[in-house]
Simulated scan of single mutants.
Amino acid sequence: MKGKREGMRAEESMGAEEILRKHGLSADGLQQSKSGFTNALFLTEDAVVKIFTEPGGAGFQKESWFYGNIAPSYAPKLLGAGEDYLVLERIKGEGLFRAWRHMTDAKREDTVRCIAEINRELNRTALPEGMPLFDPCRNWGKKLLGRMETALGKLRLNQGVPEELGRRAAEFIRANAGLLQEEALFLVNPDLHFDNLIVAEDGKLFMIDFEMLEAAPADYAVHVWNRMEIHPFNYANEEDDPLTLPEDYRFLMTWVRKYAPELFAYPKSDVRIAMYSLVYELELLCDFPKAVNPVERIGKYLEGACG
């Protein structure tokens, strides 16, 4: 389900070398990263070349805008850009999935505090004007509910979710539709899982992926952490997947609530977050109807929000 690219095609490697030289950067030690989920990532000692599979796609447009216009302290520096690639500063350090399993609970808690600060700073970033991908429309909740209904319709056809569970999910969504009429939208990263965070050698935390940025309610970011607490391995890269254990994440949501209380200040916050989580899982099941983990998570969301 992770859709990770495998292997280094010769033309991609040559393309990365040419890109680096074009921007006056060394290609010495060039190698492909295994952390890329959909795009090709190449590393040198000082730079990361990210070659997009969809050059004109939404992810490329969002990330190009972010690196080209925003220079936050929590993101790598932009070293170069083209029609289908970005060249970024390589942060010396360790991915948070790997670092997390060696941390004490006290250190993990402090790391969540840092993530909350990064998320808060991102939310304060002004939405770009005249860019349809971030259009702060007032029917955000209606669009999300439409996605849920579309996914449920597909799942009824391909039997991608147990009938009783699908019925409960549909009833829950329709009963709580009014909670998603949101008037204030922010710049949100709903993909802020630990494979998109790096702990630098000096201990500073960096965010490294902005392809899924959205104009959304601030609490929309929470559903990724909600999911991680149940099945964190779903977001781990290939090397860290087998060593990523749910018990290491048992306090994750407790700490998120402690250090990002503003994300839980909405009426019926748990219900809203469950709805965000449900639409993710339902759409995932449309692509992978035999997957077990999304079905298990749907049950947990409904139990938690309705219990």
Rank of each mutant, 00 (worst) to 15 (best):
L96R: 07
R90P: 09
K107M: 13
M103N: 00
K107N: 12
M103V: 00
L122F: 03
N119S: 15
R120Y: 11
E117F: 00
A116W: 02
E109Q: 10
R108G: 01
A126V: 14
C114V: 06
E109C: 07
A126E: 15
D105S: 11
L122R: 02
R113L: 01
E94T: 15
R108P: 02
R120E: 13
R98I: 10
I118W: 03
W100F: 06
A99H: 11
R124E: 12
H102E: 13
D110L: 14
L122T: 00
F97G: 08
E89L: 03
T111L: 10
R120G: 11
R124Q: 13
T125A: 09
N123G: 13
K92R: 08
L88K: 04
D110I: 08
L122P: 01
E94P: 07
D105H: 07
D110S: 14
L122G: 03
A116F: 06
I118A: 02
N119F: 00
L86E: 01
K107H: 11
T125D: 02
L96V: 13
N123C: 13
G95H: 08
G93P: 04
T111F: 11
A106M: 12
V87D: 04
D110H: 13
R90T: 10
K92S: 05
F97S: 09
D110Y: 07
R90M: 11
N123Q: 15
A106Q: 10
D110Q: 15
E109G: 02
C114Q: 13
R120D: 13
E89Y: 00
A126S: 14
E121P: 03
T111C: 14
A126Q: 14
A126D: 10
N119P: 05
L88E: 03
I91R: 05
D110P: 08
L88T: 04
F97A: 10
R101P: 03
R124A: 12
R113I: 01
N123A: 15
E121A: 09
D110T: 10
E94W: 08
A116V: 06
V87H: 05
C114M: 14
R90D: 12
R101H: 05
K92E: 11
R90H: 08
A99K: 12
I118G: 05
R120M: 10
G93F: 07
I91W: 01
K92Q: 13
R113Y: 00
W100N: 04
R98P: 04
R124M: 08
G95E: 02
E89K: 02
R113H: 01
H102A: 15
R124K: 14
A116G: 05
A126M: 12
H102T: 13
E109R: 07
A126T: 15
H102R: 14
G93N: 09
L86F: 02
T125C: 10
N119L: 11
C114K: 14
R101V: 05
K107Y: 05
I115K: 01
N119I: 07
G93K: 07
C114E: 14
L96H: 09
H102D: 14
R113P: 00
I91D: 03
T125Q: 13
